[in-house]
Amino acid sequence: MGGYLLRRLYHSFIVILGITLIIFIITHMIGDPVVLLLSPEATQADRDELQRQLGLDRSLPLQYIVFIKDAVRGDFGVSFRHQRPALELVLQHLPATLELTLAAMVLSVLISLPLGILASMKPGSLLDRTGMTFALFGQSAPVFWIGIMFILLFGVKLRWFPISGRGGIENLVMPAMTLALFSTAAQTRLTRSSMLDVLDKDFIRTARSKGLHEFKVILKHAFKNALIPIITIVALQFGMMLSGAVITETIFAWPGVGRLAVNAIYNRDYPVIQAAVFVTSLFFIFINLLVDLIYTKIDPRITYR
């Protein structure tokens, strides 16, 4: 195990290096920040001067070397727009993102796993059909539509929750529900189908014929065996929410990393883009490692060569 972890650590290092290189190339491909940073009266000389100030006049390889040298020390440069260190900006926005993502994740797991399991026990039952209709809705309704409907219903009409911004737990409810909807749908459907798969297997029949209580059969034997795809999708969606909550953040004016990163992309704010992608990649690497380790706990036959 120790050897495996060490190897993963080494691979992660290569991955991060790869990501920095790709992101460096891509950011320089998407265009010039300078034209977006100056007044219309600015001349070509002004633009050249700013280019020099930002260090963008140097050759690309040289810029990359400087970038890596600084990045190793945790310095991603100063944001072109915000005039603050890029990493500091990302870390400032991270708590809001983590709060929202964790809340949405907990919500969707708490709903989807029981719903998926119950639905799989009696396919075609009322509960199954209700659950799947809900899932259908969740997988095909646009996020902005859901978000604005929540605002109109729970915020304006019923006045149960504050409409926007970050604050107490009541501020978290609507954005978390909005963000959770798609993943709840996905997890419910996948849980149901994995459970159906397993419930067909011979060992379940054996367990049943031994006269075990149905709930014990379901939870102990079936669920455990259906868990691998479920864990995978939960982790996958957790990661995607971390980086992909932009629409939810925009609608609820939530001060998260998603909005920061997307605005940085639109403004060609290279340092912020690079820092944001770097931080996100750390999360993905960690989550995926965790998942691989959980696999071996669920199914001890799984080994990594």
């Binding site: 605002i151 304006v156 926007s164 609608i251």
Partner: peptide
């Protein structure tokens, strides 16, 4: 407060 979405800004004004 920065509230980018028009509909949200207006809902806040209304309430």
């Amino acid at each position: 407060r920065p509230i980018p979405e028009d509909a949200t800004r207006i809902a806040e004004l209304q309430t």
